[in-house]
Design a protein around this nucleic acid. Structure first.
Length: 146
DNA sequence: TAGGCCATCTGGTCCT
DNA sequence: AGGACCAGATGGCCTA
């Protein structure tokens, strides 16, 4: 799999180890067990994090159908998506109640069209620039909690 | 082949 | 002491 230079605790997953410790002692064994347990916990933690990213990918607009968003892109998209929804809700409060539904539909459609074309043709940097321009990103407006 | 993205290992730090 | 979290290092895979 992968090779790493470590102090003495091998992962048990096929790593190549350059050992600086004397083998066979109780202390070494204990350290090794702890390191392996820590590695296992870390893998599990990262898997949980990746599961969360996958769930997030399912609820934000995608790059077309096939391209999977990277973690960075997923966070950027989630940010712009939340800001867009927030913007829509904020502006909707200023609308008359009779035309509100129609206006909301127009806003949502507009967001989807604009966003989709950027996602298909633009780079991450362009998307970020677009997001700031289109939504007039103002961090202080979107602070949550204290 | 270079660069981007990712998984994994590891040691440090903080918290319980 | 041990677990959670984090950042750096490393190497594999994929794509332009």
């Amino acid at each position: 799999m992968k090779s790493y230079i470590s102090s003495c605790a091998d992962s048990g997953s096929g790593s190549e180890t350059v050992s600086k410790c004397e083998p066979g002692t109780e202390k070494v064994e204990r350290v090794t067990r702890r390191r392996m347990a820590a590695n296992s916990r870390e893998r599990k933690r990262m898997q949980g994090l990746n599961t969360a990213f996958d769930r997030l990918r399912k609820v934000v607009p995608q790059w077309g159908q096939d391209k999977k968003l990277s973690k960075y892109e997923t966070l950027q998209m989630a940010l712009s998506y939340i800001m867009a929804l927030n913007s829509i809700l904020t502006d909707a409060e200023r609308c008359g109640s009779s035309s509100q539904r129609e206006w909301l539909n127009q806003q949502i459609e507009h967001f989807q069209q604009e966003n989709y074309s950027y996602l298909q043709n633009g780079s991450a940097a362009e998307l970020e620039e677009y997001t700031e321009r289109f939504f007039s990103y103002q961090p202080e407006r979107f602070q949550i909690g204290n």
